[in-house]
């Protein structure tokens, strides 16, 4: 009966994962391996193709148009113009590339639209967290703490299937941006993605599928060692159950992959350093880029994080 409960939990989390995350690993790998035929992504590899990419995205019907709107984000910050979701939700958010602007503005604007997508992704992760049995019964302040500390780790894991050693899919898989192009951006923008590529290429060799990913993400959210938690016991209890479910899932789904569970536990530790470095880079950006505006939700998450 216990194993049956753990399997039921795995199925529940997998369904929630499919419900809340718009682009999962399976379709992503199909795009990256060129199995989507006519729907191959547009490739951005230099400034010229970056501008063409905008045309491409504007001409093409956006998927997920009917996704839930982000009323809570916009309501919380009425008039917040950079929150741009729904049908016209593209890589570059609300602005357009004129071709006339100074070169150094490109990075900044691209960064702003990445922030918009990240804020939307935080909402997706929040909905997923709420679907974890027992999560919404936790102290509300602890739910906030778990999300604050867990959400960037979750986003990095969600980003991994979008990446290969040569680049990353963006804009719901419609665009492939090369790693070399990202490296060619001016400092410190060029330093932002490289650590994620290094992590993702290694993480992808573990070959988790979407059902494994769902459990792993739930484990990342439910960590009893996040700073400032008020009531650790129930969180640890929930995490223990999800960890057991993950361990069983891996045994069944990857019988030949030795030590996969232990390797994933190690990844949980590695992620913490990546997030710390990421937050420090954002703090550096805030100081050096006078025109930069940090999204209020991301600001909340990163303030006093590490």
């Amino acid at each position: 009966p216990e194993a049956a409960d753990l399997r039921a939990l795995a199925r529940h989390l997998f369904r929630a994962y499919l419900k809340y995350f718009p682009l999962t690993k399976q379709p992503t790998r199909a795009i990256l391996s060129g199995k989507t035929g006519d729907n191959a992504p547009c490739v951005i590899h230099d400034m010229k193709s970056l501008m063409e990419g905008e045309q491409f995205i504007n001409c093409r019907q956006m998927p997920f148009q009917e996704q839930q709107q982000t009323s809570v984000l916009t309501a919380a910050h009425g008039g917040l113009t950079e929150v741009h979701m729904g049908s016209d939700y593209g890589v570059w958010g609300m602005t357009s590339i004129s071709g006339q602007e100074p070169q150094n503005a490109v990075e900044l604007r691209f960064f702003q639209s990445c922030q918009s997508r990240s804020a939307e992704a935080v909402r997706e992760v929040t909905e997923f967290a709420k679907s974890i049995p027992g999560f919404t019964d936790l102290d509300l302040n602890d739910q906030v703490t778990l999300l604050k500390y867990g959400v960037i780790e979750v986003l990095i894991i969600m980003m991994s299937p979008l990446m290969n050693k040569d680049g990353t899919l963006i804009s719901y898989g419609q665009i492939f941006m090369t790693r070399e192009f990202l490296k060619s951006l001016r400092k410190p923008f060029c330093q932002m993605m490289e650590p994620k590529f290094e992590f993702s290429v290694k993480f992808n060799t573990l070959e988790l599928d979407d059902s494994d990913m769902a459990l792993f993400l739930a484990c990342l959210i439910l960590r009893g060692d996040r700073p400032g938690l008020l009531n650790v016991k129930p969180i640890e209890k929930l995490q223990e159950t999800v960890l057991h479910s993950l361990e069983l899932q891996l045994k069944l789904n990857h019988p030949d992959s030795l030590q996969l569970f232990a390797k994933l536990l190690q990844k949980m530790t590695d992620l913490r350093q990546i997030v710390t470095d990421h937050v420090h880079l954002i703090q550096l950006l805030k100081k050096t880029e006078v025109d930069m505006c940090l999204h209020p939700l991301l600001q909340e998450i990163m303030k006093d994080l590490y």
Binding site: K19, V72, K130, V144, L147, E300, I301, K303
Partner: peptide
Amino acid sequence: KEKHKILHQLLQNSTSPVDL
């Protein structure tokens, strides 16, 4: 609570019943 106003709102925002 003020420090994490949006996160609180996202968590308390009642979505349609999860029909999983």
